[in-house]
Design a protein around this nucleic acid. Structure first.
Lengths: 230, 230
DNA sequence: GAAATCTCTGGAACGACGTTCCAGCACGCC
DNA sequence: GGCGTGCTGGAACGTCGTTCCAGAGATTTC
């Protein structure tokens, strides 16, 4: 497509025309810089040098824009599967790809937990399912096993989104975790024995490694669980 | 202006004054009947026969109101622990209590995933932690093990909240699940082999039982996992 | 008992939002 | 030229969270 006026209009327009892709790209940029609440049709219009009404010609509304933005980020972060990897490794790679995408764009996490199984997630669900099948889980338990993985991943996604929303957008994350850990360590000694004990583990933990540990945990459970006959 | 008799009968009490509790109770009622988006300071004021400004004397803002409503529901649903129960049974009871509370008030699920570890959840975290400890997990892995349970529970909470938000508030849930299952069954036969296969499991699954299966799965993983030395 | 003070009320108003409406532009086609 | 169509962008509508404030009761002070 060297597009020498093959389909484009003869004269170059003054500005690049609006398009669904340009709008979605601007929306992702806005979401990344100012957060979920910062995505406004007015701000978006200003960034695109137009008015709010023009955007509605290309996109039905705010929710469709959020779905499109999520889809754009997720398909860009899609993981190609290594043919020689074990099911365990493949699940880890899939989950890590999701984690990193959500870590980079926390609003994606909020969007994923806020809407029921959406189209951009279906391929990931499928890939997870195939690995579960390859782990030798009996067919009657496929749905349960994948659901466990699924809900865990969405839970972490939601927590990441919530953490990114809480303090000032630029506050240091370790400082925030540290303040929560301080709070835990100062709890009542009798009623919160356990929480006090793990305060330091909270302070020093690494989100990404912890997420992977949870994945391993569930995979261990999936293979070790005594599934009901079926 | 002849109103000398503006005073009501002596026995008739004046309208019950506003109070934080009355406001929170009305908010929970509103959230249960019209959903998360239906909680409006104007609707709340109308229900309390007052103006929006009066509410702000007792409660700082919308988010504090949501936290207070969540706290009210969660403390009302708190589970007392049976002394003779195994750790496994106790975790199941705790998780089920949370599940049922969220099932009855789906907006609680959205609230829990939308805010970082909040005060009303700390007791539950503590109780979960004690059971994990009782399961024999090495101390260095306490935080990881509880986090896995935690994130799974929050993931299910978020999905429940999302499901309750999607269709018309009164639409039958099984009909909705059925339509999703139909969609899954009609997917491309090559690219979605697995998803097609589990479409019927999705259609016939029971949310509550599935949730419990996931809990069992993670508990199995926690006890069977080869924790790193520490 | 009058006046001052405090607590609490509720209606009006502000600014921002999502969304709709519509007058008008630039083009493709006759 | 005229005309229709695809697209633009600014104005406007209704609703939201929130703030403001004049004042009603109740309570205290003189």
């Amino acid at each position: 497509m060297t597009g020498m006026a093959s389909r484009t209009r003869g004269a170059e327009r003054r500005r690049e025309p609006l398009s669904r892709e340009r709008i979605v790209a601007a929306a992702v940029e806005l979401l990344d810089t100012v957060g979920e609440g910062g995505l406004t049709f007015r701000a978006l219009a200003e960034r695109l040098a137009t008015g709010p009404g023009a955007i509605y010609w290309h996109i039905a509304g705010r929710s469709e824009l959020l779905v499109a933005a999520t889809d754009a980020v997720l398909t860009a972060a899609a993981v190609g599967d290594e043919p020689d990897a074990t099911p365990h490794e493949t699940v880890r790679a899939l989950a890590l790809g999701l984690f990193d995408a959500i870590d980079e764009h926390p609003w994606v996490g909020a969007q994923l937990v806020g809407t029921p199984s959406q189209s951009p997630m279906l391929p990931i669900f499928e890939q997870l399912g195939r690995q579960v099948r390859a782990l030798g889980v009996p067919q009657g338990a496929w749905f349960s096993a994948v659901s466990a993985l699924w809900n865990y991943i969405l839970g972490v996604a939601g927590q990441n989104a919530a953490n990114a929303r809480m303090p000032q957008p630029a506050t240091d994350r370790t400082a925030y975790v540290g303040s929560v850990a301080d709070h835990w360590a100062a709890l009542d000694a009798d009623r919160y024995v356990f929480t006090r004990t793990v305060a330091d583990q909270l302070r020093e933990h690494d989100d990404r490694a912890e997420f992977l540990t949870g994945i391993d945990l569930i995979l261990t459970g999936i293979t070790a669980h005594r599934w009901p006959a079926g």
